[in-house]
Design a protein around this nucleic acid. Sequence first.
DNA 1: TTTAATAGTGTAGGAAATACACATTATATT
DNA 2: AATATAATGTGTATTTCCTACACTATTAAA
Lengths: 220, 220
Amino acid sequence: MQTHFTIDCVILTFDEGQLKVLLAERNEYPYKDWWALPGYFVNKYEEMEDAVSRILFEMTGLKDIYMDQLAAFAGVKRHPEGRILTVAYLALVQMEEVKNKISSGSTYMRQLKWFPVTALPDLAFDHKEIIELSLDRLKKTVSYSMTPYELLPSKFTLTQLQQVYEALLNKQLDKRNFRKKINNLGYLKELNEFQKGVSYRAAKLYSFDKKKFHKTFSQD
Amino acid sequence: MQTHFTIDCVILTFDEGQLKVLLAERNEYPYKDWWALPGYFVNKYEEMEDAVSRILFEMTGLKDIYMDQLAAFAGVKRHPEGRILTVAYLALVQMEEVKNKISSGSTYMRQLKWFPVTALPDLAFDHKEIIELSLDRLKKTVSYSMTPYELLPSKFTLTQLQQVYEALLNKQLDKRNFRKKINNLGYLKELNEFQKGVSYRAAKLYSFDKKKFHKTFSQD
DNA sequence: TTTAATAGTGTAGGAAATACACATTATATT
DNA sequence: AATATAATGTGTATTTCCTACACTATTAAA
């Protein structure tokens, strides 16, 4: 027996102190006018990884973004016309990198918009469940990984970094202990630049040192 | 566009000091006579979770086993007849529990056999890759989880438990430190029973205390 | 009774995690 | 110029966890 086969993309970023997910407004039945994850059908002779890149590009205009397979969802009742199996993929992006590139190249989706994960609209299909699974997955993989850095601009303050950890772990962290730990990991490059446009003491900017990070993990 | 849709089961256990996986000898083309993961097609109106239970039962005779979704594999070249999307599920079982229940109820698979994961035969499709992904996944989730206990008989010695950790992590552990750590976790119930049939000092048996385990993790 | 094989046990040193509070600095406001 | 505001940036003591390391105890078999 055969089934329809789609890819859905969970695209997360960190902006204005919050985790946000990119959603699209559907322009087709079922769930016309509902918000949904950007996604579409896989072609017959297309490798799944190629389909992921293509669909991501067609639906959002984004290219060359690493996506990780999250899980397959195949409920018979997901779609009124019968089973549609979807494989969900997860991407972490930097808002500054993508904000001017995002545009729907498909008539299938009307507009794209970032929603804080704590304030999602009603979602089509089982897309809410898919986003929740993404967040669970992330929570498990945060610590000591480069996950938080993928969500931040290339230059960031320690407070921003701490906010990402706090959003992902969903708990408060002590500033001094956090900085001690992060410093010990040694992935940070201290820049001689400072935050701009704030009406209080400007924080020093840092960037993520990929070389040091990979050195640490290649021994493992 | 549509695709064929199957489930494959990675069933792991711990036996004779080794991690073993259950494989089936195929009785159908393609890959007739090759070893493969037990798996089959999902029915049209069947929920994926129901399909997993059904296929597991038809292929191996096993029932009521918790299976965790591993990943979807959808390579166009997986199958000579075109794409077959498979969703792989992972189960951990206790050898003593299952060894008398296993039997192929399908003409599709000829015989079932346990193979040490370190000595796999050539496998059909991309099943080797699927098994390797299972082991990677396990390695990441071992520590402080109940994973190792699912692979052991309900009564086990501390040495057996250590062997499971060693097999999953693929490294040697210090006996005293291991016992200290395990004791601190406090999931163990010390029984007043001893190992039998060994020609040396018999080790004390322990069982896993689910209540204590869940208490620890529900705060989290 | 001896041998072989595994069970079972403690301590000291180092590393990392936690708890906790105040002076400093840049800007905006009066 | 003085003041208020809002966030930055820093240290220490305590406890907990991790690691390294070697010998005696027990049982069955020879």
